[in-house]
């Protein structure tokens, strides 16, 4: 299957600050891809570049098109929810639904109405009168009524309480995702989406520091709670990250066969959160060019 996103050497400079510093990434069609990175890592800039909202240097193809040349054509195949309440506050809910129905050729009003009827969003209220949770529900209802190839979510649940956050991802997975479309989610709340993801991208300081399928994580990365007697041997295998856990040393290894590690202690598959911390620490250690 081809990759829906193909990016090579993306560079974006804001004055002296390099927001993207040669980003290479490929996102497979049908994946639920997590774009994870600390604040200022370049997540939002990357996502904006993918949908043509930000001019970048480098090679970029999204759904077979260059977003820099044909954003409006691309947006027939791509939907976007951003990290802030971006719906126009002066519009009433029904006016917003009318607008999307009139401008988007793939919008299915019945689907939107069905999603909305399962919420408590009043149709005749202005968006500025809705709670943040309701605004996110409304945006999700609009997006779920559009049959697209790629859905881009930039911190979509930021500032929402746990009930709205859980409902958001439940609906996304159960009522929207059908395996054909691709979803890219950027978030800080790694634990919340860990079980959804099939593809993982870590970004730091404008560079992709890890690009892996979730199915490959267990094969590539191993966390070992090292027996005290094996510490020197473990260090010799160049762990990418070490930490202390309940008085024991815990080493994370990349691309070291598990058969070689089993004799060092208890072997585990690291969680995405642990792996994220490990890769961020590793990228900090690497000299910056």
């Amino acid at each position: 299957m081809t990759d829906i996103v193909q990016a090579k050497s993306l560079v974006k400079q804001y004055g002296s600050f390099r927001a993207l510093d040669g980003v290479d990434l490929n996102i497979p069609t049908g994946a639920i891809s997590g774009l994870i990175g600390p604040n200022g890592a370049g997540k939002t800039t990357t996502l904006k570049a993918l949908i043509g909202l930000c001019d970048v240097e480098g090679e970029l193809k999204v759904a077979g098109q260059d977003p820099r040349r044909s954003r409006h054509k691309l947006m027939e195949d791509v939907c976007f929810i951003a990290d802030v309440g971006i719906l126009p506050k002066w519009l009433k809910v029904y006016q917003l639904v009318d607008y999307v129905a009139d401008v988007h050729p793939r919008f299915q009003r019945e689907r939107a109405e069905r999603f909305l009827s399962s919420t408590e969003i009043p149709r005749d209220k202005r968006i500025k009168e809705l709670s943040k949770g309701m605004v996110t529900q409304l945006h999700l209802a609009l997006v779920m009524a559009i049959d697209v190839r790629l859905l881009v979510l930039d911190e979509p649940t930021l500032g929402l309480d746990i009930i709205y956050r859980k409902e958001f991802y439940d609906r996304l997975l159960n009522e929207y995702y059908d395996g054909d479309c691709t979803i890219i989610i950027s978030t800080h709340q790694v634990e919340e989406i860990e079980t959804l993801l099939s593809h993982l991208l870590f970004i730091n300081r404008g560079k992709v520091v890890m690009d892996a399928m979730m199915s490959d994580i267990a094969e590539t990365f191993t966390e070992v709670i090292v027996d005290p007697a094996q510490l020197e041997v473990a260090r010799g295998l160049n762990p990418i990250y070490t930490r202390e856990m309940l008085g024991k040393q815990c080493f994370t290894f990349e691309a070291v066969p598990r058969s070689r590690l089993e004799s060092l202690g208890e072997c585990l598959t690291p969680s995405v959160a642990d792996l994220f911390v490990a890769k961020m620490k590793e990228s900090k250690r690497e000299p910056q060019v």
Binding site: I51, G52, L53, R71, C79, F80, V84, P88, H104, H139
Partner: peptide, 20 residues
């Protein structure tokens, strides 16, 4: 105005060209 209040991200997420 839409750039200031960030609703431009919504308007630009629709398949409507800047020319239009």
């Amino acid at each position: 105005q839409d750039r200031r209040e960030l609703s431009i991200l919504f308007w630009q997420s629709m398949p409507v060209s800047n020319l239009k």
